[in-house]
Deep mutational scan, measured.
Amino acid sequence: PKDQAKKEIEKALRNGDEEKAKRLAKKYGISDDDWKELKKRVS
Rank of each mutant, 00 (worst) to 15 (best):
P1H: 14
P1A: 15
P1I: 15
P1V: 15
P1L: 15
P1Y: 11
K2T: 13
K2P: 10
K2V: 13
K2Q: 14
K2I: 14
K2E: 11
K2C: 11
K2Y: 13
K2L: 15
D3V: 09
D3F: 11
D3K: 09
D3R: 09
D3G: 09
Q4I: 12
Q4D: 12
Q4G: 10
Q4Y: 11
Q4C: 11
Q4S: 11
Q4V: 11
A5E: 11
A5Q: 13
A5D: 06
K6H: 12
K6Q: 09
K6M: 15
K6P: 03
K6D: 05
K6S: 08
K6V: 15
K7P: 03
K7G: 07
K7M: 12
K7Q: 12
K7F: 09
K7E: 13
K7R: 14
E8I: 07
E8K: 06
E8W: 08
E8T: 05
E8N: 04
E8D: 08
I9K: 00
I9L: 03
I9W: 01
I9V: 09
I9P: 00
I9T: 01
I9R: 00
E10S: 05
E10T: 07
E10K: 04
E10A: 07
E10L: 15
E10H: 04
E10P: 00
E10F: 07
E10G: 03
K11D: 15
K11E: 15
A12L: 13
A12H: 09
A12N: 03
A12R: 02
A12Q: 04
A12M: 10
A12T: 03
A12C: 06
A12G: 01
L13F: 03
L13I: 05
L13A: 01
R14D: 03
R14M: 09
R14F: 05
R14V: 06
R14H: 06
R14W: 06
N15W: 06
N15H: 11
N15G: 09
N15V: 10
G16N: 07
G16K: 05
G16R: 04
G16L: 05
G16Y: 04
G16V: 01
D17I: 01
D17A: 04
D17K: 04
D17V: 01
D17P: 01
D17S: 03
D17L: 07
D17C: 05
E18M: 12
E18Y: 14
E18G: 05
E18V: 13
E18R: 05
E18D: 07
E19F: 05
E19V: 09
E19H: 07
E19G: 07
E19W: 05
E19K: 10
E19L: 08
E19Q: 10
E19Y: 05
K20W: 11
K20H: 14
K20M: 14
K20L: 15
K20N: 09
K20I: 09
A21R: 00
A21F: 01
A21K: 00
A21W: 01
A21N: 00
K22V: 10
K22M: 10
K22Q: 10
K22A: 10
K22Y: 06
R23C: 10
R23Q: 15
R23M: 13
R23F: 09
R23H: 11
R23P: 00
R23D: 13
L24Q: 01
L24V: 03
L24H: 01
L24P: 00
L24Y: 02
L24N: 01
L24A: 02
L24T: 02
A25K: 12
A25T: 02
A25G: 04
A25S: 04
A25N: 01
A25Q: 05
A25F: 02
A25H: 02
A25D: 01
K26I: 14
K26T: 10
K26W: 04
K26Y: 06
K27R: 09
K27E: 15
K27Q: 14
K27L: 14
K27A: 10
Y28A: 12
Y28S: 06
Y28F: 11
Y28V: 06
Y28K: 02
Y28M: 09
Y28T: 04
Y28P: 01
G29N: 12
G29K: 08
G29V: 03
I30V: 08
I30F: 10
I30A: 01
I30Y: 07
I30S: 01
I30R: 00
I30Q: 01
I30T: 02
I30K: 00
S31W: 02
S31I: 03
S31H: 04
D32M: 09
D32T: 06
D32N: 07
D32L: 08
D33A: 12
D33N: 08
D33E: 14
D33I: 09
D33M: 09
D33P: 04
D33Q: 10
D34A: 07
D34N: 03
D34W: 08
D34F: 05
D34I: 07
W35I: 08
W35G: 00
W35D: 00
W35V: 08
W35Y: 15
W35Q: 01
K36R: 11
K36W: 14
K36Y: 13
K36C: 13
K36P: 02
K36Q: 15
K36T: 10
K36D: 15
K36A: 12
E37V: 03
E37D: 10
E37A: 08
E37I: 04
L38D: 01
L38E: 02
L38K: 01
L38W: 02
L38A: 03
L38G: 01
L38M: 12
K39H: 10
K39Q: 13
K39F: 04
K39L: 15
K39S: 05
K39W: 04
K39E: 10
K39P: 02
K39G: 03
K39M: 12
K40T: 11
K40H: 13
K40M: 08
K40P: 02
R41N: 12
R41S: 11
R41I: 12
R41K: 15
R41Q: 11
R41E: 08
R41Y: 04
V42K: 02
V42D: 03
V42G: 03
V42Q: 05
V42A: 10
V42M: 08
V42N: 06
S43E: 15
S43I: 12
S43G: 12
S43T: 11
S43Q: 14
S43W: 07
